[in-house]
């Protein structure tokens, strides 16, 4: 066996176990799902081909559009909230701006370890009409009928969920940035410090440019995670009241598993994928531009 043959065989050997599992458990069912999305399959009988009808219906559905809006808000909170905040926290910890950094780092990361279902339950116990905060307000203001109106507002009901998401996921980004800051060559920063650069100058001129790649990568996670967000929201509100907090994954779930519209639900899950691909392509375009500018 020549060296090149050996190399090629090793390549396949290293790739095969993962790829085989991945293909059979994810790619193949997804392909099946994709083909169903062009049918009116309802769970039994032969699927009838209906072309793009499911997609047209979904895009014209007011509930879907509101879900899409909620999803985009979640994307926005992840990309423009969790990531910058995670970076800021990592930066503060890395530059040792606070004492006991190790403790804070632990606390900020801790929410990741808790199941979304548990998080949802806890927050519900705190904020629902029968929860802790409402009970306190009722006692303090002597208004036994007090309820938090924000949960009953079509536009704003998603905000408390956005807040919980911010709390839950910022830790992940903090850890990623913290690790990457550690990897940066300290000599560069030291040289800058000797030259009398301030913290903010170092941040803008050295650290951020070196982080463009990492930021772009985390943004990909943020976008894909945000678009398939399900567990936390489903456990907190189930998409309700009145679809106010619904997201596409819940929309898909309800149509598939409650209304037995399998083809329709498949189309909705394909839209999640398409949307994510689109957003990620835009993101890569932007990050490439940035990288070039810094070079």
């Amino acid at each position: 066996m020549t060296f090149l043959q050996q190399k090629r065989m090793s390549y396949y050997l290293l790739l095969a176990p993962g790829l085989l599992l991945f293909a059979s458990i994810i790619i193949f069912p997804v392909a099946y799902s994709l083909s169903l999305s062009f049918t009116s399959f309802g769970g039994y009988g032969k699927p009838a081909f209906i072309g793009l009808e499911n997609y047209v219906k979904i895009l014209g559905d007011e509930v879907f559009l509101h879900s899409l809006r909620n999803n985009l808000l979640i994307v926005a909170v992840s990309v423009f909230g969790q990531i910058p905040l995670g970076f800021l926290l990592a930066f503060l910890l890395h530059r040792k701006m606070v004492r006991n950094g190790n403790f804070y780092q632990t606390m900020i990361f801790l929410p990741i370890t808790i199941s979304p279902v548990v998080v949802a339950l806890l927050w519900n116990q705190i904020f629902s009409s029968s929860g802790m905060v409402v009970a306190i307000i009722r006692n303090l203001t002597d208004q036994p009928q007090y309820v938090m109106k924000i949960f009953e507002n079509r536009q704003m009901a998603i905000y408390p969920i956005l807040f919980v998401l911010l709390w839950m996921h910022t830790g992940t980004y903090m850890i990623i940035f913290f690790a990457n800051l550690q990897k940066m060559t300290p000599s560069l920063l030291e040289a800058a410090q000797i030259d009398g650069a301030s913290e903010s100058q170092m941040l803008g001129r050295i650290i951020l440019p070196g982080m463009v790649g990492t930021i772009a990568t985390t943004a990909i996670f943020a976008i894909s995670g945000s678009l398939k967000a399900f567990d936390l929201i489903y456990s907190m509100t189930g998409g309700g009241p009145a679809h106010f907090t619904e997201v596409i994954a819940i929309y898909m779930y309800i149509n598939t598993f409650k209304y037995y519209k399998y083809g329709f639900g498949s189309a909705a899950s394909m839209i999640i994928v398409l949307l994510a691909v689109g957003l990620i392509l835009i993101l890569q375009y932007i990050s490439r531009k940035f990288e070039r500018r810094f070079e």
Binding site: F22, I25, I26, I27, P29, V30, S33, I220, F221, S224, L227, K228, F230, A249, M252, Y253, T256, F257, G265, S266, S269, M270, I272, V273, A276, V277
Partner: peptide, 10 residues
Amino acid sequence: LGLLITVHSV
């Protein structure tokens, strides 16, 4: 692409 797949769709 696998990152974008929800469990429910498979």
